[in-house]
Structure formats: structure tokens, C-alpha cells
């Protein structure tokens, strides 16, 4: 599903180049549940951006579902993001002026699905994460765990091949974190590849495979089972 070959990425910081990724080789198969671990500054966020087609890489090759992701136009990148990838963020990133259902439906808006239809689909996904009764509520009326479940429903609605989650439990207490991880596991069981970036060991240990990053390189890749 995901294949990275010698990915390099550097940022201009002041007068000198800062090498963030120094040749990442990685393979994630279809239907895997993988976590990416690393201390801050290890390059895990940058890696996630590249995986999510939110950022370019300098050299190497990135194949997503057999398609090379390279030098895409903004429009093409937007298309791939919409079709292949669902995002879940640490700070949920729901639109504050839209209710839960509208937030979940938003990716379908960009697929030009009619309002009525996408709201109906959104309700189904909300039901799946157990929040159907909260459909009409605005984000500030929801708890952290509920917000993250809405965000997961939103990531799933476009039927993506991959879910990319950036510290999805970073803002949640441990009970809620476990609930959210359970949902990720259920999602994974349906055959969707899930990649979770985290720095929490217990979260990482709930995934099937841990990829450890250090200083821009993969230091260890271990299977959990």
C-alpha cells in the first residue's frame, strides 16, 4: 500500500539546511495497523505530512497504492487526499461553526455529493462511532473523546484506503484514549490501513507494528505479534 524509498527532506532554517528525513525506506502493506514513534524532532510529523501528501519530499520515491506521488499539482494532491487518505489530528480540527453531522459530511462536499445525500451518509458514520444522537451538536458541546470520534467518522466517510492519525490521543485521558484506539482497531478490521503517529508507548503497543524514528532515520521496525 505504502512504499517509501530513500526519502530525503530538508528545511531551510535561517542560513543552513536542516536535514529532517535522511533516507527513509519503509513498506506498509494493505490493511496494516502501524504506529510511528519517535521523540520530538525525530521527523515523524514530517514523515506524516509526506505520507498525507501535505508536503513534498526532496528526493526518493513515494508510491501510494501503486501510484507515484511526486511533483503533484495542488489540484491533483487535493484529489488524492480526498480519495485515498483520511486524517485524524491531535486537536480534532473540527470546524467550530458546523455541527457534528456537517463536519463529518465535509469531505463529501469536495466530492460534489449533494447535501441531502452526504448528510444521510454522515449520519451512518456517526452511528458507527456511537454519536448519532449528537449529530446536531456543535463541536464545543462535545467532549474531547466525542470530538475525536467525530473526526474519525469524518476521516472514514470518503472511504479512504489509509487513515493517518497524528497523535490522536494526545489530548485525551487514558480511558477515552483506549476507546478511540478501539475504534481504530475496528476500522482496521474492515481492511483500511491505519497509521498512527504517537509518542505514547501504551498506544503504540495496541498496534500491530511499531516503526521507530530517530534523527530522521528508521532505527527499528518491530512486529507486535
Amino acid at each position: 500500500m505504502i512504499e517509501l524509498k530513500k526519502i530525503h527532506k530538508s528545511y531551510q532554517v535561517g542560513n543552513h539546511q536542516l536535514q529532517v528525513l535522511k533516507g527513509i525506506d519503509m513498506f506498509i502493506g494493505s490493511g496494516e495497523l502501524v504506529s510511528v514513534m519517535g521523540s520530538s524532532g525525530s521527523g515523524k510529523s514530517t514523515l506524516l505530512n509526506i505520507l498525507g501528501i501535505l508536503d513534498d519530499y526532496d528526493s526518493g520515491a513515494y508510491h501510494l497504492d501503486g501510484t507515484i506521488i511526486q511533483n503533484l499539482t495542488e489540484k491533483k494532491a487535493a484529489y488524492y487526499r480526498n480519495q485515498f487518505i483520511g486524517f485524524v489530528f491531535q486537536s480534532f480540527n473540527l470546524l467550530s461553526f458546523k455541527n457534528a453531522m456537517e463536519n463529518v459530511a465535509l469531505p463529501l462536499y469536495y466530492q460534489k455529493v449533494s447535501r441531502k445525500k452526504r448528510n444521510k451518509i454522515a449520519l451512518e458514520y456517526l452511528e458507527m462511532v456511537g454519536l448519532k444522537e449528537w449529530a446536531e451538536h456543535l463541536p464545543y458541546e462535545l467532549s474531547g473523546g466525542q470530538k475525536q470520534r467525530v473526526a474519525i467518522a469524518r476521516a472514514l466517510i470518503s472511504n479512504p484506503k489509509i487513515i493517518l492519525a497524528d497523535e490522536p490521543t494526545g489530548a485525551l485521558d487514558s480511558t477515552t484514549s483506549l476507546e478511540v484506539m478501539d475504534i481504530f482497531r475496528q476500522v482496521n478490521k474492515k481492511g483500511i490501513t491505519v497509521i498512527i503517529v504517537t509518542h505514547e508507548d501504551d498506544i503504540a503497543h495496541k498496534t500491530d507494528k511499531i516503526i521507530r524514528l530517530h534523527d530522521g532515520q528508521i532505527v527499528d521496525s518491530e512486529g507486535m505479534r
Binding site: G52, L54, E74, K75, A78, Y79, R81, N82, Q83, F87, N93, L94, L95, L106, P107, Y110, Q111, R154, S158
Partner: peptide
């Protein structure tokens, strides 16, 4: 800006 980021992550094209 944050809203724009969210929309882009969800597949909004620059034109939209």
C-alpha cells in the same frame, strides 16, 4: 487559516 488547512486536508482544491 486553520479552517483552510482542514478543508485542504479533506480534499479542497485551491480553486475551491
Amino acid at each position: 487559516t486553520r479552517e483552510i488547512g482542514i478543508r485542504k486536508a479533506l480534499g479542497a482544491t485551491p480553486a475551491s
